[in-house]
Simulated assay, not measured.
Amino acid sequence: MTSFLSENGAFENWMRTACDVVEEDLARKHERMKKSSFLFLRATFFRWAHLVKSRAPEILDLPSPLSVGDTHVENFGTWRDAEMRLVWGVNDHDDAALIPYASDLVRLTASVRLAEFDLSNREAAAAILGGYETGLRAAGPTLLDERERWLRDYVGVSDEERASFWEEIDGCPAAEPPEEAQSALLGGLPRGAKPERFARRTKGGGSLGRPRFVLVANWRGGRIVREAKAILTSGWDWANGRTNAPNYLEEIVNASTRAPDPFLTFGHGFLVRRLSADTRKVERDADFDAKLDAKLLRAMGSEIGSIHAHSFELRDEILADLDGRDAEWLHELGKLLSEGVEADFEEWKAFQG
């Protein structure tokens, strides 16, 4: 298998042909990648396909539904749907593609192992696999206003976090986005909104380096925010030589088994979404780490199953394949792929010094 350094260089060179890479943000990404194997995992989905090929090639023959791709414990968050219901689920779909179903499960399992939670790795695998089958059989969005109120304990936003959100937005440096990004951002505003300023935003793990802009506007007595992020081909397709493959973002966001965010739109090569304190990715902190348990991991597994169930013609094939598998299968695959990630991580740390 090609060394990580070589593949990372090839991926970043390709990125430079596909968008106007923000080199300063790419340098930040490099720094983050050497801090922990978990952050390294988040930043390197393009490498995942090659790890699967080299360490678990049997995965490649499994049914391939529309999948998240870059699954991990920090790729979940909240938004409001067209009925203003609070929804929880996967909220970053940059690497959506048609991928063997086990990949999403193994990557989520590996992320738990690499993040070093108190929960045992076997318990984590059992919870994820059990939730996944439930999501396949009873697909649907996770609605926090009705059926899944218990999740509010994991995603609630404090007054301090609301203040921090606006501090972050106010701290974004002023910028003049390219015409395409400006058009996308302005097109996402409600009628009568008055634009105040454009700015550049640095955020994310694997997407660091892509152009990302925000527009702050005033509307009906208060400020609102829109963000535009450049859309690229999924890292899975890139790794398999399909460098110009279409992105599946729009299909996965609006999948039949989900309650989509009506403020999430696509145009001019950018994804545009509304930003607010309670429309957010739930990232790790000390409180989150203490709360992560089997119940939350079952919910994460169920969300993945529900997304895969959108590929309805494959659901029975996936369920039939699962009949011959158990949590130990997922646990061992998670361990195997984690070891590959850690080997790449050590190579990267040695190179960075």
Results as ranks from 00 to 15, higher is better:
2 T>V: 15
8 N>S: 13
8 N>P: 07
8 N>R: 15
10 A>S: 11
11 F>M: 02
14 W>Q: 00
16 R>Q: 09
20 D>S: 10
26 L>K: 03
26 L>V: 01
27 A>S: 09
31 E>F: 14
33 M>T: 03
37 S>L: 04
40 F>W: 06
42 R>V: 01
43 A>R: 05
46 F>D: 02
51 L>A: 01
52 V>S: 01
57 P>C: 07
59 I>Y: 13
60 L>Y: 04
61 D>F: 12
62 L>G: 06
62 L>T: 13
67 S>R: 02
72 H>W: 02
75 N>F: 06
76 F>R: 03
79 W>P: 02
84 M>T: 12
87 V>C: 11
88 W>V: 08
89 G>A: 09
90 V>K: 00
94 D>S: 05
104 D>W: 00
109 T>A: 15
113 R>A: 08
118 D>F: 11
118 D>N: 11
122 R>M: 13
125 A>H: 03
127 A>K: 02
134 T>C: 12
137 R>P: 06
137 R>W: 04
143 L>E: 13
144 L>K: 10
145 D>N: 15
145 D>F: 13
146 E>Q: 14
147 R>Y: 11
152 R>F: 06
158 S>D: 10
159 D>F: 05
161 E>H: 05
164 S>G: 08
164 S>Q: 10
167 E>Y: 04
169 I>V: 10
176 E>A: 14
182 Q>R: 15
187 G>A: 07
189 L>M: 05
194 K>R: 14
194 K>I: 13
198 F>N: 08
198 F>K: 05
200 R>M: 12
206 G>H: 06
210 R>E: 09
211 P>H: 04
212 R>F: 08
213 F>Q: 05
216 V>Y: 03
219 W>S: 02
224 I>D: 00
228 A>F: 08
233 T>P: 00
237 D>C: 05
238 W>Q: 02
239 A>H: 00
240 N>F: 12
242 R>Q: 12
248 Y>I: 04
249 L>V: 08
253 V>P: 06
254 N>L: 09
256 S>Y: 07
257 T>H: 03
265 T>W: 03
266 F>P: 10
267 G>V: 12
270 F>Y: 13
271 L>V: 15
273 R>Y: 09
278 D>Q: 07
281 K>E: 14
288 F>L: 14
289 D>F: 12
301 G>Q: 00
309 A>D: 08
310 H>D: 11
312 F>G: 12
313 E>M: 08
313 E>A: 13
319 L>A: 00
320 A>K: 14
326 D>I: 09
328 E>R: 14
329 W>Y: 12
329 W>T: 10
330 L>D: 08
338 S>A: 11
339 E>N: 07
340 G>L: 06
342 E>K: 07
343 A>K: 13
345 F>N: 05
350 A>G: 15
